[in-house]
Amino acid sequence: MQHVRITTPPELTDQVLEIFADDPAVSQLSVVRGASLHPAGDIVDVDVAREAANDFLDRLDALGVPERGTIHIVPVTSWVSREGYEAERRTPGASADAVVWADVTQRAYEESELNWTYLAFMTLATLLASIAIVIDSQVLVVGAMVLGPEFVPIAALGLAAVRRRGALFRIAARTLLVGFGVAITLATVAALVARALGWVALDDVTGPRPGTDFIYSPDKWSFIVAVIAAAAGVLSLTSAKVGGLSGVFISVTTVPAAGNVALGIAFGVGHEITGSALQLVLNISGMVVAGWATLAVQQALWTRRSVREARAASRARATKD
Score class of each variant (00 low, 15 high):
M1P: 15
Q2C: 06
H3P: 00
P10R: 08
T13R: 10
V26H: 07
V26P: 11
Q28N: 15
L29T: 01
S30G: 12
V31L: 08
V32I: 15
G34L: 03
P39Y: 06
A40P: 06
V44S: 04
V48W: 09
E51I: 03
A52Y: 09
A53K: 06
D55S: 15
F56G: 00
R59L: 10
L60S: 05
D61N: 12
D61A: 14
A62Q: 12
A62R: 12
A62D: 13
G64V: 07
G64M: 06
G64T: 00
G69Q: 03
I71K: 08
S81I: 01
E83T: 11
E86M: 13
E86G: 01
E86V: 12
A87G: 03
A87H: 09
A94C: 08
S95G: 10
D97N: 12
W101A: 06
A102W: 12
V104Y: 14
V104P: 01
Y109A: 02
E113G: 12
W116Q: 09
T117S: 13
Y118V: 02
Y118Q: 01
A120L: 15
F121G: 01
F121W: 08
A125Q: 02
A125F: 01
L127S: 03
A132T: 03
A132E: 03
D136G: 00
V139W: 07
L140M: 11
G143I: 01
E150H: 10
I154W: 03
L157A: 07
G158K: 04
A160T: 03
A161Q: 08
A167F: 07
R170E: 10
L176F: 08
G179A: 04
G179W: 05
G179Y: 05
V189L: 13
A191Y: 00
A191S: 12
A196R: 08
L197S: 09
L202S: 10
L202I: 15
L202M: 13
D204F: 07
R209A: 11
T212A: 10
F214L: 08
Y216V: 15
S217E: 10
W221F: 14
I228N: 06
V234C: 03
V234N: 06
L237M: 11
G243T: 11
L245Y: 13
F249V: 01
I250C: 01
S251Y: 01
S251T: 09
A257T: 05
G259W: 04
V269I: 11
V269W: 08
G270M: 15
G270E: 15
H271Y: 15
I273T: 07
S276Q: 09
L278M: 13
L280E: 00
L280Y: 07
V289W: 03
A290M: 04
T294E: 05
L295E: 11
Q299W: 13
Q299A: 14
L301T: 06
W302V: 13
T303K: 14
R305A: 09
A310N: 07
A310L: 14
R311M: 14
S314D: 14
R317Y: 04
R317K: 13
